[in-house]
């Protein structure tokens, strides 16, 4: 079978195609005939050797994918050959609070991932795909959508009428917008592009602000909420945007810190508004398999469809990576396999 490998991790040009024997499932494992995968921002870092320690050159990349179970090993319960599945990328984090050991079994990072014709996945992490969802749509979810869900539901305990703010129009942010809307909340979103903001409006965004033309975007958002501010922030920008995110918050707001898109901060974040406004800031490391199952139930019930910007062929996977680097997309980038 054909598979992609990380190679020597000097950038996306290091990615290499290889030929391997068909995998056999070990105890607790399933072999999946992969139909689709998706990219996340961290995959750029992984390919460039800047995401944690160097990985073996033969590591198969990508945390997100979907396909059919074609073989199961001993001691596998809960899935059978023929099931349509995706998987929780922290394959040992099924439920409960975070434990750093989950990083030891992270698809596409510390264990082989999805960018291959047949993937070997720990069966306990597999999640069945709703009938009406395509493989590509399911493959878009594990990292980005579960992270957005973890902030909005797990931390944020969203209720209808809340206002959710998300920064930029990448994978996590567009899911955050959609999850906010499906919960009866209002969604505020920022972007460097008016064109992208127009697409967000079509997706239901209530408040849109161009952070390039409005460097004081926190004020713009506060004004558009009648001075009240937002209840939940999906903080994809990182510590460089945190002061402004906090300034855009309503009392009792919940801020999920997940990203670092905006680079290194020039000055340490100004935290003082947190005390006077009873704001909560939490570090978020994606989420659990249980959250993933809850998300799929909610998507199925509300007919929410992931926004897939572009789909690349398996042989063109490097172009999918380049397309992410160029950042001229909204939502998710998918690779179709087989």
């Amino acid at each position: 079978m054909k598979t992609w490998e990380l190679g020597d991790q000097k950038g996306i040009a290091s990615l290499r195609m290889a030929e391997r024997a068909e995998p056999k499932p070990g105890p607790g494992q399933a072999v999946i005939a992969v139909k689709a995968c998706s990219l996340n921002r961290r995959d750029i870092g992984i390919a460039g050797g800047t995401y944690g320690a160097a990985k073996p050159a033969t590591r198969i990349p990508l945390s997100d994918g979907a396909g059919d179970v074609v073989a199961i090993g001993p001691d596998v319960t809960g899935v059978k050959v023929g099931d349509r599945v995706t998987a929780s990328h922290y394959t040992t984090w099924l439920d409960g609070t975070f434990d750093p050991s989950v990083r030891n079994a992270d698809l596409g990072v510390s264990i082989d991932g999805w960018l291959t014709e047949r993937a070997v996945i720990p069966a306990a992490a597999l999640v069945p795909i709703p009938d009406k969802m395509s493989y590509a749509e399911a493959a878009a979810l594990p990292v980005a959508a579960v992270t957005a869900w973890s902030v909005i539901e797990g931390l944020g305990r969203i209720k209808s009428g809340d206002i959710v703010l998300t920064l930029g129009t990448g994978g996590v942010s567009i899911f955050a917008l959609q999850i906010a809307k499906m919960n009866g909340a209002r969604a505020a979103i920022t972007s460097s592009s008016d064109e992208k903001l127009a697409r967000c409006k079509d997706l239901g965004a209530d408040i849109v602000v161009n952070y390039k033309t409005r460097p004081d975007w926190d004020k713009a958002i506060r004004d558009q909420t009648g001075g009240r501010g937002v209840d939940i922030v999906v903080e994809t920008g990182g510590f460089a945007t945190l002061s402004q995110s906090l300034a855009a918050c309503a009392p009792n707001a919940r801020v999920g810190m997940i990203g670092a898109l905006a680079g290194r901060p020039e000055a340490p974040p100004a935290l003082f508004p947190m005390v006077g406004n009873n704001i909560t800031l939490k570090g978020i490391t994606s989420g659990t398999r249980r959250m993933f199952v809850e998300l799929l139930k909610a998507m199925d019930a509300t007919d929410m469809k992931p926004v897939i910007d572009k789909t690349f062929a398996f042989d063109d996977a490097v172009n999918a990576y380049q397309y992410m680097v160029d950042s001229d997309f909204i939502g998710k980038i998918v690779v179709s396999v087989g």
Partner: peptide, 25 residues
């Protein structure tokens, strides 16, 4: 809660630890 000593905090550990920082009034 405190304002006894102001400084320049490094927050990255919050993310790595899934820790929660709450302002309390």
């Amino acid at each position: 809660v405190g304002g006894l000593d102001a400084g320049q905090p490094q927050l990255f550990g919050l993310v790595a630890k899934n820790a929660v920082l709450g302002g309390i009034t």
